[in-house]
Computed example of a mutant assay.
Amino acid sequence: MTFSVSGSSKIKICGIMDDATLQGMSGLPVEYIGFMFAKSRRQLTPERAAELLAVVKQIPMASGNPPLAVGIFVNPTLEQLAETLSVVSLDVVQLHGDETPEFCRQVGERFKVDVWRALPILEDTANQPDRGTQRLDAYKGAVSTILLDTAGGGTGKTFRWDVIPSYQEAAIRNGLELFIAGGLNPGNVNELITTYHPVGVDISSGVETDGVKDSHKITAFVERVKYS
Rank of each mutant, 00 (worst) to 15 (best):
E79W: 00
V30S: 03
I33D: 01
D214S: 13
C14L: 04
E109W: 06
L22F: 07
R41E: 14
E83P: 07
G64V: 09
D91W: 09
G64N: 10
I16P: 00
D130R: 15
I146C: 01
L176D: 00
G187F: 11
D210C: 09
T84C: 15
P46L: 12
I13A: 01
R105D: 08
I218T: 00
P101W: 08
A49R: 01
I146K: 00
L178Y: 02
G141N: 09
I193W: 02
Y139P: 00
A181Y: 03
V70S: 00
L68H: 14
I13C: 04
D162H: 14
C104Q: 05
A151I: 00
R105V: 03
T194N: 06
Q80D: 12
T195W: 03
V225E: 05
M61Q: 14
S4D: 14
I13Y: 00
L53Y: 05
E31C: 11
S40D: 13
R131A: 14
E177P: 06
A69Y: 06
G175M: 10
Y167Q: 08
T84M: 06
V92L: 11
G156R: 09
Q128G: 08
S144C: 07
A38M: 14
G183M: 01
Q94D: 10
D19G: 08
D98V: 09
T155P: 13
G108W: 07
V92F: 08
A20C: 12
Q58F: 01
E177M: 10
